[in-house]
Design a protein around this nucleic acid. Structure first.
Length: 578
RNA sequence: CGGGGUGUAGUUCAGCUUGGUAGAACACUUGCCUUGGGAGCAAGGGGUCGCAGGUUCAAAUCCUGUCGCUCCGACCA
């Protein structure tokens, strides 16, 4: 394969496999990357990529480059070290907070280690691009990014230094931006398909980056950190943060007057439902947050069996970042932790958001803002104060109705390997990046940004495809496609036969490795399984004698024996299916 | 930030309670033997026990401090 260093001999390849498992690894992918000699940790969330990993990384990058270029992208390389001033212009120097790695030079000038490059690329464009005739413009790079994660974990899944492809699109209008967005969406679909991964593009929340619509490309894997909701009937799929929910309606029943009742010790929903012998669906749960930015109290109310979706709550309140509220703040607003409801809350001291499903409830039980007391027969539409804001703030759960067609949603775990954002003019306006349109009018650029975690994609492939014996690489991103293994690495005849096969594979354009190590067969077989070469060709005295070539498929464990003069075609056929 | 755990050979760990010659397995080196699923035998090399103080005749072990790493939590009302 072009551009790749050719380690043809395993005896010279630096691939320190471990027989024993380093203790700290958590997920399948993290364990296998360490065990199979792909990565080594330098510090929390910071890793060295060893030769095998780097080959895979380069293959993934190559696929990305080809698809980015095909979609009209041009590769550039922006600095990792970025001046603080740029981030102050966009307002993100403070917004990004502790997540940003910062440094100071000898003159006390402040810099960041780029966590992303919207500011940088926008500043680049604003000084150079003056006319709509120069648009659209799609620029991308593949390089290290830095984020001081609160808790790095799972190896390459959540690192503090990681490789990312980021592309930025600049268009003259919204239509143009949507066209660029669609190009990227299609390119991402091709990239993950070519990488041999099972994935799902899902509607996503834009989060802190802002802007309009967004999709995440989620690689399906049990060990993933994100949940996606997929419709069992139609094509709707969304991240759990995003998944919209229509409010549930309550059964018709006669509205009863509110009644205050003693509920000693019932400070959780479970205790309460238990004590009153009512279903949790008849209770209303309170969750108290504070906006980290201005400290204001935010009270969220959802049905007893539901959970608060913090992302939706953020969007509903315009808060910056939610933290747990402390009890004093709750009490100051008239609330009572453990026995809370909107009734009796001082609307001037708290933002109260009621989930749309709660707004439809009838004769429910809710706290009385007094220790050991609740109200029963509360009907929010009648009894809740007017300052309550009603919004969809609940987290999706298995079986909820699809917002598009009403069929049940199913929840699946996955790894967010890529995300595309339609940004609009958020950054171009902040940074004053404008051009002249056809009518000579000055306009801000319509932007989009599109990221792929390269290391994360590599690990995602393992999370999805590894088994108890090791990695099972999709052929397109395997460090080598075929390993040629003479069972006796000291036997001249076997070695030269293996060498001949190796040469033939290379000539046919197959990325092969010759395992010429003087190890016992068992050791080499174990390593092959661990490292996960899609195919293994075993060279034995028996095979040489019979003029046969033995091929083992890592994924299925199948073993094929081909005639020596015909094996090459068969190997190519097998590879095509992997 | 809150709460645990941990730091001893390249790696995984034991030893610490009850202070007294620093250990095992794997890895490594050399030789023999062996070669279809991480072999066997023999002989070796390798650690100022995270760091700094203190107690003691004597500290990996007890005390104090400090640094690193790691896990859980920070979506409970």
């Amino acid at each position: 394969m072009k551009g790749l260093t050719d380690f043809m001999r395993a005896s010279q390849l630096y691939a320190p496999t471990l027989r024993q498992m380093p203790a700290e690894a958590e997920t399948k992918g993290h364990k296998l990357l360490l065990r199979a000699g792909f990565i080594r940790k330098a510090a929390g969330g910071i890793y060295t990529y060893l030769p095998l990993a780097w080959r895979t990384i380069k293959k993934i990058e190559q696929i990305i480059r080809e698809e980015m270029d095909a979609a009209g992208g041009q590769e550039i390389a922006m600095p990792i070290i970025q001046p603080a001033e740029l981030w102050r212009e966009s307002g993100r120097w403070d917004v990004y907070g502790a997540e940003m790695m910062r440094l100071t030079d000898r003159h006390d000038r402040e810099f960041s280690l780029g966590p992303t490059h919207e500011e940088m690329v926008t500043a680049l464009i604003r000084d150079e691009v003056r006319s709509y005739k120069q648009l659209p413009l799609l620029l991308y790079q593949i390089q290290n990014k830095y984020r001081d994660e609160i808790r790095p974990r799972f190896g390459l899944m959540r690192g503090r230094e990681f490789i990312m492809k980021d592309l930025y699109s600049f268009d003259k209008d919204v239509d143009g931006m949507n066209t660029s967005y669609q190009k990227m969406f299609d390119a991402y679909t091709k990239i993950f398909t070519r990488c041999g991964l099972k994935f799902r593009p899902v509607e996503a929340d834009n989060g802190a980056i802002g802007g309009g619509h967004s999709h995440e490309f989620t690689v399906l894997a049990e060990s993933g950190e994100s949940n996606i909701a997929c419709c069992t009937k139609c094509s709707y799929a969304a991240s759990d943060e995003k998944a919209e929910l229509k409010p549930l309606t309550a059964a018709d029943e006669e509205l009863l007057p509110v009644d205050k009742i003693a509920t000693p010790g019932a400070h959780t929903i479970e205790l309460l439902a238990d004590y009153l012998k009512i279903p949790v669906e008849k209770t209303i749960k309170a969750v108290a947050f504070a906006d980290e930015a201005d400290g204001r109290l935010i009270l969220a109310f959802v049905r007893g069996d539901h959970e608060v979706n913090e992302t939706k709550l953020l969007n509903a309140t315009g808060a910056l970042h939610l933290v747990m509220a402390d009890d004093d703040a709750i009490k100051a607003a008239g609330g009572c932790p453990g026995f809370m409801s909107p009734i009796g809350i001082d609307g001037a001291k708290a933002v109260v958001v009621v989930d749309a499903t709660v707004a439809n409830m009838k004769n429910a039980v809710t706290g009385a803002n007094e220790v050991d007391f609740h109200y029963k027969n509360v009907t929010p539409s009648r009894d809740f104060p007017a300052f309550c804001q009603i919004a969809d703030i609940r987290l999706v759960k298995e079986g909820d109705a699809c917002p598009k067609c009403g069929a049940p949603l199913t929840l699946t775990r996955g790894i967010e390997a890529g995300q595309v954002f339609a940004l609009g003019t958020k950054y171009s306006e902040k940074l004053n990046a404008r051009f002249l349109d056809e009518t000579g009018k000055e306009k801000p650029f319509q932007m989009g940004c599109y990221g792929i975690g390269v290391g994360r994609t590599m690990q995602a492939a393992i999370e999805q495809n590894g088994d108890e014996n090791g990695i099972v690489w999709p052929r397109a991103i395997a460090p080598f496609e075929v390993a040629v293994v003479p069972i006796n690495g000291k036997d001249e005849q076997q070695l030269s036969f293996a060498q001949k096969i190796y040469d033939e594979l290379k000539t046919a354009g197959i990325d092969a490795l010759l395992d010429d190590r003087p190890e016992r067969a068992g050791v080499k077989f174990k390593d092959c399984d661990l490292i996960g070469y899609p195919l293994r060709i075993t060279v034995s005295p028996k095979g040489i004698e019979n003029g046969e070539v033995e091929v083992k498929v890592r994924k299925t464990g199948e073993i094929f024996v081909f005639a020596a003069d015909a094996y090459l075609t068969e190997v190519q056929n097998l590879l095509r299916e992997l």
